[in-house]
Nucleic acid binder design. Structure first.
Lengths: 335, 335
DNA sequence: CATTTTTTCGCAACCGTTTTCGTAAATAAA
DNA sequence: TTTATTTACGAAAACGGTTGCGAAAAAATG
């Protein structure tokens, strides 16, 4: 209701609008005396500057966009936490956009990001995304983009990921070491580097162990709803695997449910390891061995490097590539 | 780099800036012919309007704020999903702010929201919040505020919650019916209505069953990190409860861990029921009986009513009070 | 053909803040 | 005292759209 802006302050203090503005920004051009008067009246009248007017003039929005496939996922919500913590400390605001794993959505979102609404973009691409143009367009507008976790390989910019290949290797080796002879790999996308790299690690481990390519089972659970059925039929097959690697968190519940349903005991009949940051992992039945990604740290690191790109446009993001290792936490599901 | 704005379009088409603007907004004042030309050039040059310039003039930001205690919680992330789905359909953008359960943070956030940055606010208050002024200030600036889940009772505005009292009653009755004689209630706040209401339901149920006030055990787990220890010492006490009601999701893991650690079997020695939207509930050890809140629907409903308040300022939010019931899903933990 | 109405567009103010530049007064240097 | 410099402020033009109003041209009406 009050609509108190700089003009109101100026009128009441018999000063010019520009003087008020400078006083509020603590300019050297203004005397300490008037600065104090301005500050006092400002707090008294509860003056709050209009960010959009400021953005318009300064061409800085003090806002970043976070684009992700979904938010109901522990990895992503922890990453948001990390991002938010950095953004807050920098005085930035965070817009959240969800692609719901659809390329078309992601494209629309990035298009909007070209408007000047945001100073930079943090993105974890959708599982459908396998082209780069829509991201390139953003970069052409001089809007820095940083990938976290799910990157698009063709784009030259900073990325913060975890050691996916190594973890794929570790996960598979862990299963082999625990006695699995035919572990399967459950993926959600043929294009996502995280899935591909984890899978390559899996393949490498199996190869080193002397298994042939045709003995490796890789199942793509692309359909979110059909996941349970896919896992179920995999476990009902004659040559069913004796180990499962869930490449992302959301595969865990279908896997456990299918095993319970089919009376397949974990870890006796099938061992399970999952890439997940589930905090319920230790209380599952049985407790789940996880490759736990440092989601919070990834978010923080990605935001930190993004702000470097935002704050000095000379900064070359394309050289930045940070890998924060995940941890294998052994629990009952692979005992 | 391109910096294509309305002026560029105007120059290239030998038209005035205002004509371009009106054409883009499909004004009746502009002929179909020129509209077409403008649209064509606009798409050709990849013109994207500056939202802040528009916001400044029209005094509409097409943006809402979502203020919540934390995002790494299934309830809240699902609620965000619901909110986002409505916002997206309305062409609105969503700013996320986290209070981390601190009143001071929440206050700062809401202060910023008075700037004109957002057209409305959806909030689930922090567990520390027990005053109303900071929210009132927002309303005085004519910025509609809607509560979801965690409301502040002194504020007159719309709220979307679940049937907390009934669920507290249901939860306690369920335990009683399953044979518990001394169920305890685990809360996180003395001021949050959700906790209070659920607790009142619990008390009512126990009273109806003939238990006296002094036989009711109510434990406040306010410290996030100390939760495990608190639960542990509760379970080590001589008069330890034979049933536990976790009033919020994040209490679940500490409870299960403490029980496992102390070798207290669920449900034989202690039955557990929790307010939670955990999708891992069915695969916990043992599967967890939950009061499952309709988080997504609450988010959707809250956003929907907020937009009513935003779109017509005549709309009286204070009368809106929607209660979306939760579901008791029985599983092994209370068998 | 004169007059009224409609169609189509441009001018200019405006949203609230920032910033360049000019200038009067105060102070310092000559 | 005169000149140079510093201090402290104001006027006005941005930033990129939006919108009320006026007006010329075209169409409709009498």
């Amino acid at each position: 209701m009050s609509k108190v802006n700089i003009k109101v302050l100026a009128d009441q203090l018999q000063l010019s609008v520009s003087t008020i503005s400078k006083a509020l920004r603590d300019s050297y051009e203004i005397s300490d005396e008037t600065k104090k008067k301005v500050l006092e009246l400002a707090t008294q009248l509860n003056y709050i500057p209009n960010p959009y007017a400021s953005s318009l003039r300064r061409k800085k929005s003090k806002t970043i966009a976070v684009v992700l496939p979904e938010v109901a996922d522990n990895f992503f919500s922890l990453a948001i936490n990390g991002i938010q913590s950095i953004a807050e400390s920098k005085g930035y605001h965070v817009l959240i956009y969800l692609s719901h794993e659809k390329f078309a959505n992601e494209k629309n979102i990035l298009e909007d990001c070209q408007s000047g609404r945001v100073d930079g973009v943090l993105i974890s691409i959708s599982s459908e995304t396998n082209t780069a143009e829509h991201i390139n367009k953003l970069q052409n507008q001089n809007i820095p983009v940083v990938f976290f976790d799910r990157e698009q390989e063709a784009i030259k910019t900073a990325r913060v990921t975890t050691n996916d290949f190594d973890c794929g290797l570790m996960a598979a080796n862990h299963l082999l070491q625990k006695g699995c002879r035919r572990p399967a790999f459950l993926s959600i996308s043929q294009s996502l580097p995280i899935c591909q790299n984890r899978m390559e690690g899996y393949k490498a481990a199996l190869q080193q162990a002397g298994l042939r390519e045709e003995d490796m089972q890789i199942v793509y659970c692309t359909d979110n709803d059909g996941m349970y059925d896919q896992v179920r039929s995999l476990l009902q097959a004659a040559d069913r695997p004796d180990g499962l690697i869930a490449s992302v968190e959301k595969i865990v519940t279908p896997v456990y449910l299918a095993c319970h349903e089919l009376n397949i005991r974990i870890p006796n009949e099938v061992k399970v390891i999952a890439f997940a940051t589930l905090d319920t992992a230790p209380i599952l039945n049985p407790p789940l061995t996880t490759i736990t990604q440092p989601a919070f740290e990834i978010g923080k690191a990605a935001a930190t490097v993004l702000f470097k790109g935002i704050e000095k446009s000379a900064f070359d993001l394309s050289k930045e590539r940070m890998v924060i290792p995940s941890l294998l936490i052994e629990r009952e599901s692979t005992k």
